[in-house]
Design a protein around this nucleic acid. Structure first.
Lengths: 230, 230
DNA sequence: CCACTAAATGAATGTCGTTCATTTAGAATG
DNA sequence: CATTCTAAATGAACGACATTCATTTAGTGG
């Protein structure tokens, strides 16, 4: 996993907010950044099944209940992790260069980041952007890119949402077992499907999930790109 | 919620398999169909939070442990529910009529069914089709339609997967809170995004999630439809 | 009528997230 | 320097849960 891009990350300065009041007890063992980092590490090591408030506390050498002085629920921790992960999504190409390539870079990196974290998708997908500053920053960069590319203002958000929906669904698909389309004993009852599955397996040399993502992404690029002003 | 379409449902006869051995004790209180129906009812009444093995057993007047004679886990119940719900997805238009309209009917009904059951999406998205006969039947109908429409065989599965990924992601989006894009105190730090959100709110008369779904779906129809043979 | 067996029972287990009264230890105040 | 304030950590406890298992129940074939 790449390090967070130092310059482009957090362009709206969201993380520089006054969290500590003035400074009564300076020896704080815990804070949200530390919790986020430890959570990400734990998830990387143990997966989302092993990700437990107790396990998280253990890696921080702290009692589980201590976490609740800094986050209000486990879901809160997941939101922090999600927002942090979003800073790994590549939006640099929206600042300059052609719109198509910027969307490609963004979409592929977005899918790749969250295909390793699909349990977060139900969280992200319905999370108000105001609760996730880095995610908001991503939207600003993408919106600016769409605007610069000549999209009518009222179509920018729907177009981004369409891309994003496709990306989230594709992130799941990328984690599906390779034999997901094996029809087993039903094969002769589903001739069209079974034959299509076989023909695809013979044809493609890239991972099936990647082929589907590429196909859908290029279709969206063509279809939505047509909304731009000439 | 509509009743299962009697004729088009279960076209491969998946549900008519010999489940009962020969017939020792005929007074079985429980079976998979009964569990599925009760689960769907319970979910409709109490949502997925209230959906508990204990609660499910209570509606069936049975001890929780009795369920484990018929399903091996809670996830198993969710798989049964998911497969049952799939029979509500409309694939009738794939049998005749233009491909575009068939995909529209299919995609909108697919999204509508699962936007009321988003907790199932992580289950469906990675579930081998052999474990879900009705879902397999849906794929057969859709594959046949794509084939009839002139798609090259090796592109049928990737195209369906692309549509489906978009549909799953959009199902989440359809359940997002209306003010999800409210940037709050960050508004002036995200001018492009904030302005785009405002312009969209002024413009559209349909639900934002519906506008995004329509836009993306039509783009995919155009882009993927171009793969068909002339 | 007996033996077999699928199915239901109810108690028990272990894992969680979360709460809360209490303690701890720096920092500010006078 | 002593007192006071308070954020933060503690540890015990709770209430849900899914799941297991030894035991019981009750039809059915032989």
């Amino acid at each position: 996993m790449p390090a967070p891009t130092s310059a482009p990350a957090d362009p709206i300065g969201a993380s520089a907010m006054p969290r500590r009041r003035v400074g009564r007890p300076a020896a704080a063992v815990l804070d949200q950044d530390g919790i986020t980092t430890a959570a990400l590490q734990l998830i990387g090591k143990s997966g989302y099944d092993g990700f437990t408030m107790a396990a998280l506390a253990r890696t921080l050498n702290v009692a589980p209940s201590a976490l609740y002085n800094h986050v209000s629920s486990k879901r809160d921790v997941l939101v922090l992790v999600q927002d942090h992960l979003t800073s790994f999504v590549d939006v640099t190409a929206f600042e300059a260069g052609p719109w198509e390539q910027a969307v490609r870079d963004w979409a592929w990196s977005y899918r790749d980041v969250f295909s390793k974290h699909t349990p977060l998708i139900p969280v992200i997908a319905v999370l108000p952007v105001a609760d996730a500053p880095k995610t908001l920053a991503m939207y600003e960069a993408v919106s600016a890119g769409f605007s610069r590319a000549g999209f009518p203002q009222e179509r920018i958000i729907p177009a981004i949402v369409a891309f994003e929906s496709f990306i989230f669904g594709s992130a799941y698909d990328a984690t599906a077992p390779a034999d997901i389309f094996d029809s087993g004993t039903m094969a002769e009852a589903t001739p069209h499907f079974t034959s299509a599955v076989r023909r695809q397996a013979e044809d493609t040399h890239e991972k099936p999930a990647d082929a589907a993502f590429r196909l859908g992404l290029e279709a969206l690029l063509t279809g939505l790109g047509a909304l731009r002003a000439a």
